Simulated assay, not measured.
Amino acid sequence: MVKVEIVEERDQDATNSPYLSPSSSRTSSSVSLSSVGSEPDGEETFYDRLRALVDIVPPTTRHKISSRVANAAGFFKSGGKLVGNLVWIVTTSALLVGLPLALSLEDEAKIVAQEKEMLAQQQGAQQMMAPSMYPAPPGSQPSQNQQKGIVPPGF
């Protein structure tokens, strides 16, 4: 059987040693274990941790991953360029062809509306000049000096 005995050093030279702590030697081992924590360093970033993983991944796997990422980035870049060109073609075509066409259709609609209005005004003037199609109501005596259809100027 083994007997464990705690020995305290009382030598003066040992107290000047940089490896001794002010606490007793019995608690120094537990203090040193508790001081070693698993918490990450406050200054270490996520990017630093990823960079440290480079040594874990074999070079062939790293090459495969980087080539696949580069291929995917190239695919998205060329696809985005193609979509951008198509959008440019559609918008310039709409501006060069569609806008003048829409403006001319709007002008033609205005002209048609003006023609209808003028036709309605002409028909209204003809109805005012023509004798009334309806007979005079019974009991009323039409007077000859009563004027019909006088429109003040400016109307």
Rank of each mutant, 00 (worst) to 15 (best):
V31I: 12
S34K: 04
S35N: 12
V36A: 14
V36I: 14
S38R: 05
S38T: 06
S38E: 05
E39N: 06
P40N: 13
P40S: 15
E43G: 09
E44T: 09
F46M: 05
Y47M: 11
Y47T: 08
D48H: 05
R49F: 03
R51C: 11
A52Y: 05
L53C: 04
L53H: 02
V54Y: 09
I56E: 15
V57D: 09
V57W: 11
P59E: 14
T60F: 07
R62C: 00
R62T: 01
R62S: 01
H63Q: 06
K64D: 03
K64A: 03
I65E: 02
R68C: 09
R68T: 07
R68I: 05
A70P: 01
A72N: 03
A73I: 11
A73D: 12
A73Y: 10
G74N: 06
G74W: 03
G74K: 04
F75T: 12
K77V: 12
K77P: 01
G79V: 05
G79T: 08
G80Y: 00
K81S: 04
G84F: 10
N85C: 13
N85H: 10
L86A: 12
L86E: 07
V87I: 10
W88C: 11
I89M: 11
V90L: 15
T91F: 14
T92H: 02
T92V: 08
L95V: 11
L95K: 07
L96P: 00
G98D: 01
P100T: 07
P100Q: 06
L101A: 08
L101C: 11
A102K: 02
L103G: 01
D107R: 11
D107N: 08
A109W: 01
K110V: 14
I111K: 13
V112Q: 15
V112I: 15
E115I: 12
K116T: 09
M118F: 01
L119M: 15
L119A: 14
A120N: 14
Q121A: 13
Q122D: 09
G124E: 05
A125F: 09
A125K: 12
Q126V: 09
